[in-house]
């Protein structure tokens, strides 16, 4: 059991949890993730380690309540425990002094970007962060991101806060203003990462993305997480999760993410039925 030390709602449907996992907390590096199994009948699913406190022995996870597994996790309260947490998995983000790094986080993707900006900053980079969400109430970690960036830009689809539009618009504005950018890091929904990569390819800026395929083991033994990068099949859980965004086959990833769409609906129906019976 991995006890939940703290639980906090960050936005509608987005929760933060601090989980007791001292060894992972001591070891993890920016860009790595854990795989969780909430209970005996649960599935294994990945979440990024958004932060860690080695002294307290906790890791922070931030997640969007999407389907059955994240719902089961969200139902746990402080003092209760997660059955299995394994990690730190994946390769850490490649951190060095690049110069000016622009880090883009979309939606719940802001969570994985947070440890990356901290590490990039610590390595002496100038960090501009762009965070975006559909609307103001869905925007998370604004304060934390501002505190650790040289500059923070905010975009919402509906303009309820910050710039009205997509993060790509803000990036385009920076290019128009002839701002030099040495590296872009983008994490978020696949269509967002794909759009960012299309733009940065035109602009000739190296871009790193963090991919989120469906996973089972997270150690390279099932191949379920495979994606095509530069024409080669790679396993995201061990070769990634970060890759050169200009080489990723996003179309394939989008299709593979839909593999269990029918099952996901069935699983939710099942949960609703069970909850209905319980009432």
């Amino acid at each position: 059991m991995y006890p939940i030390k703290q639980k906090r709602q960050l936005a509608e449907n987005i929760l933060l949890m601090k989980v007791q996992a001292p060894k992972i907390a001591a070891k993890r590096k920016a860009g790595q993730f854990v795989i969780l199994r909430v209970n005996e009948t649960g599935e294994r699913f990945p979440l990024t380690i958004a932060d860690a406190d080695p002294a307290a022995g906790t890791i922070t996870i931030i997640f969007q309540v999407a389907g059955r597994s994240t719902r089961a996790l969200a139902a746990l309260n402080e003092g209760e425990g997660i059955l299995d947490v394994v990690g730190p998995l994946g390769k850490p983000t490649h951190i060095e002094k690049f110069g000016h790094v622009v880090c883009i986080g979309g939606g719940v993707g802001i969570a994985p970007v947070y440890p990356i900006i901290c590490a990039m900053k610590a390595a002496g980079n100038r960090v501009t962060s762009i965070i975006s969400a559909r609307n103001k109430s869905l925007l998370i970690l604004e304060e934390e991101m501002r505190a650790h960036s040289d500059e923070l830009k905010v975009a919402t689809d509906d303009g309820s806060t910050g710039f009205k539009g997509f993060p790509t618009h803000l990036l385009q504005q920076m290019a128009d203003a002839k701002e030099r950018v040495d590296l872009v890091v983008a994490v978020g929904p696949v269509p967002m990462m794909r759009a960012v990569c299309q733009l940065t390819k035109q602009l000739g800026i190296r871009t790193m993305v963090s991919l989120n395929p469906i996973m089972v083991d997270g150690t390279g033994m099932c191949g379920g997480c495979r994606v095509t990068v530069g024409g080669k099949t790679r396993f995201v859980c061990v070769d990634g999760p970060e890759f050169d965004g200009h080489a990723v086959d996003f179309e394939e990833l989008i299709k593979r993410l839909k593999t269990y769409a029918v099952h996901e609906r069935a699983a939710l129906d099942h949960v609703c039925k069970m909850e209905g019976q319980a009432k």
Binding site: G42, E43, R68, S69, A72, H263, A267, H270
Partner: peptide, 13 residues
Amino acid sequence: LMKAYRFPEYDTP
């Protein structure tokens, strides 16, 4: 391992 043959009682599809 994940008992998907007992989906949806078990979560793994």
